[in-house]
């Protein structure tokens, strides 16, 4: 290893090292800077609908002097945005916990299944991806709506009377159902990857030494699967916070989420600068969990 480090880097090596940075600059940093710039502008009735517009480096001083943080001040002034961020975080936290609750037993069963059927089980988890995400969420509308399949089932079973209807569609419950259903594979797969690597002899040893199975689970299985729990939770938590499609299709008017607020600002109010400010703040809200995630990953790899 040390010999390899001592070698003078060849151009090919440089390319390999630089490539991720170029990628990030092009597809993350540059778009982010554009959004940041728009968030410092003012709305205008024009094409594009904000001012000032970047006119080249000659007039850059003039351009910068016209930027201000008015939009950010507006965001803190108005409780709507704070409520929307908090409500999104709340929904994301609850959804992630529900996902763990549903996903962990699934992943554990998969990891404990005989090696022969494991690939089939993994395949079954991935299978829903073969259908468009949008169609799958639409299918839930058919199931949950008052005269939908769930009502029909309950009525057929005699649990519901002929006039009773399930009142789930367009409530927050429907949003949770949609989110847990859609994100389940993202939770199960990292958990499965962590649990599958688990050394079975540890549990045998625990059992031999008189440890009951539930205690062995909390003392051995769960701590060792923690990297999977963190990875799965982060992969789910971050996109759920900004989720727009599921609350829009399944949620009611009361379900306030930041993705929807962003949509209204951008399309309804044509307020691109404010929408950009909302997006920048959303990014900051999400960067913190990402950093924690990165930190944990590094620790896990360091072990």
């Amino acid at each position: 290893m040390s010999e390899a480090h001592a070698l003078k880097p060849s151009p090919a090596r440089w390319l390999v090292v630089i490539f991720p940075y170029v990628w990030l600059t092009l597809f993350f940093l540059a778009p982010f800077l554009i959004i940041l710039k728009i968030s410092l502008s003012d709305t205008a009735i024009a094409m594009p609908p904000y001012t000032p517009v970047f006119q080249g480096f000659g007039a850059i001083g003039d351009f910068i002097s016209q930027l201000d943080i008015e939009n950010y001040i507006f965001l803190t002034d108005d409780p709507l945005y704070i409520d929307a961020y908090l409500s999104s975080l709340r929904i994301a936290v609850i959804s992630t916990l529900l996902l763990l609750l549903v996903g962990y037993p699934m992943a554990l069963c998969m990891a404990r299944a005989s090696a022969g059927i494991r690939p089939t089980l993994v395949m079954l988890v991935i299978l829903p991806f073969w259908t468009s995400f949008l169609i799958r969420v639409y299918a839930w509308i058919g199931i949950l709506k008052p005269e939908g399949l769930l009502t029909l089932l309950l009525q057929t079973l005699g649990i519901y009377g002929p006039d009773d209807q399930v009142q789930i569609f367009r409530t927050e419950t429907a949003v949770f159902i949609g989110i847990v259903y859609s994100y389940l594979p993202f939770m199960v797969l990292p958990l499965y990857a962590a649990l599958e690597k688990l050394d079975g002899t540890l549990l045998e040893a625990a059992s031999d030494l008189g440890c009951p199975p539930w205690k062995a689970f909390w003392k051995i299985t769960f701590p060792l699967s923690l990297p999977g729990v963190i990875a799965g939770s982060m992969i789910c938590f971050i996109p759920i916070t900004g989720e727009f499609v599921i609350p829009d299709l399944l949620g009611g008017a009361e379900t306030l989420m930041i993705g929807k607020t962003l949509w209204t600002e951008f399309f309804g109010n044509r307020d691109w600068p404010l929408a950009s400010a909302v997006a920048v703040i959303l990014l900051l809200v999400l960067v913190v969990p990402i950093m924690i995630f990165q930190n944990q990953q590094q620790k896990a790899e360091g072990k």
């Binding site: 108005d78 709507l80 409520d83 008017a253 009361e254 306030l256 607020t261 209204t264 309804g268 109010n269 044509r270 307020d271 404010l274």
Partner: peptide, 15 residues
């Protein structure tokens, strides 16, 4: 427009 949509969002979310 901002005032309008602000009031409208408040009404819709029932806050």
């Amino acid at each position: 427009q901002r005032v309008l949509n602000r009031v409208w969002t408040q009404i819709k979310t029932g806050s």
